[in-house]
Amino acid sequence: MAKVKVKVATDWLAGCAGCHMSFLDIDDRIVALSELVEFTSSPITDLKHPPKEGVTVGILEGAICNTHNIEVAKQMRERCDILIAVGDCATFGGVPAMRNLVGTDAALKRAYLETESTVDGVIPDSDELGKPLDTVVGVDKVVKVDLFIPGCPPRADAFFYALTELLAGRTPVILPPELFTYD
């Protein structure tokens, strides 16, 4: 009987995709990992949402900056057993949280109306878009997070270390000092 693979889903919020890129930097180890893990959904696979039947590990990159981010985070939380926040944005708010220092309204005005190259600018407000929040926060401020891997981006080895520890059934995962970094 084929071994049942552990299901993993990833998604990104207000981030830059850099954490996902760093994850891919585990290079050929991804082949070995695929023997044990099934990557179900992610922004770089056909399936974009975590499967309804759930996954064991959910990974989120990026900060919570609008209502859409909250929905995505909540859905991932509901559908995974272990939620990992990866990167400085998901753990601390990161670069998107710079907006907090000027306020959301001022940031939107500056970005959409007042840039030097803008003519007749409009602040987008379609119903299909998430509504910006007053404060950008880390993922743990809206859903429970089981493991934080900070870093901008987290080192590829930190991803690999965390997943292999979980696969070996060792919790909580304590990152070794060389993989625990803020920048």
């Binding site: 753990t91 601390f92 708010g93 950008v136 926060v137 891997i149």
Partner: peptide, 13 residues
């Protein structure tokens, strides 16, 4: 091992 903000996220400049 401070890996997230336990208290509120900074907002004041």
């Amino acid at each position: 091992h401070v890996d997230h903000w336990v208290f509120s996220t900074y907002t004041k400049a």
